[in-house]
Design a binder for these strands. Structure first.
Length: 215
DNA sequence: ACTTCTTGTACGTTACATCA
DNA sequence: GTGATGTAACGTACAAGAAG
């Protein structure tokens, strides 16, 4: 929970960087939140007709919303001069215009957060996929390595068998005779007959074929 | 420098309208 | 009729700037 809050704060900080002047208050409220005062209900306080008339007024007309949206599109911040001008153009109270902008900014931020979230989610899914692919590659390569080591061992044993039959050549080829074991320069081929370490080219290619699936 | 006031903002919440 | 959703409006905390 604390981590989620931290992530959210970081996210909001990011948005404030991306859209300066729109989200300016980054600092979270510290300590225990003070209890909020409950707003009393209107029901029963007014006469029925007055309440109905009041209720009718609540929703802004399509034209009012259209103009407000147009203004919001131009600039998310609302200077008092613009607020007053808009209010008189729309026949609204300046307070209503201010509230509309507040709520509109909140909706905009939420939408932005959702967009950011889905972008990050997509990236994350890609990364997870790549991780799986790399892990599978590691497994394949390990398998190849085991095969190669087995083959080397087999060949070493064959060489040993041969050398024990002809002692004159043992000093040249026996791996045990060398300490440390000759991993033979950088790639372990120097000093050996190329045929001794030959691994069929096809087996290597087959081993890499799976990679093409991802290319 | 300090306090106080004003204004604007984010955020959380409430009340109401609308729709399935 | 009812629950879900959208939104206008409100209450609160906070920051910044102006004024005294």
């Amino acid at each position: 929970m604390a981590t989620q809050m931290k992530e959210l704060e970081e996210h909001m900080a990011l948005i404030s960087q991306m859209y300066p002047g729109v989200y300016t208050q980054v600092a979270p409220h510290q300590g225990e939140p003070k209890p909020r005062r409950r707003r009393r209900k209107n029901k029963g306080t007014d006469s029925g007709a007055a309440a109905a008339a009041e209720a009718k007024k609540r929703k802004l007309s399509d034209e009012q919303v259209r103009l407000l949206e147009l203004n919001f599109g131009n600039e998310h911040k609302l200077e008092s001069e613009r607020k007053d001008r808009l209010a008189s153009e729309l026949g609204l109270d300046p307070r209503q215009v201010a509230v509309w902008f507040q709520n509109r900014r909140a909706r905009w931020r939420n939408k932005k957060l959702e967009e950011e979230y889905s972008k990050l989610k997509t990236v994350h899914e890609g990364v997870v996929l790549e991780k799986c692919r790399l892990e599978s590659e590691v497994l394949k390569l390990k398998e190849q390595l085991r095969e190669a080591e087995k083959e080397i061992q087999g060949m070493t044993e064959r060489i040993d068998g041969v050398s024990s039959n002809s002692p004159s050549s043992s000093s040249v080829l026996s791996m045990e005779a060398m300490d440390p074991p000759p991993f033979l320069g950088e790639f372990g081929v120097q000093g050996y007959d190329q045929d001794v370490f030959y691994i069929g080219q096809n087996s290597y290619i087959q081993g890499l074929e799976w990679m093409n699936l991802y290319m």
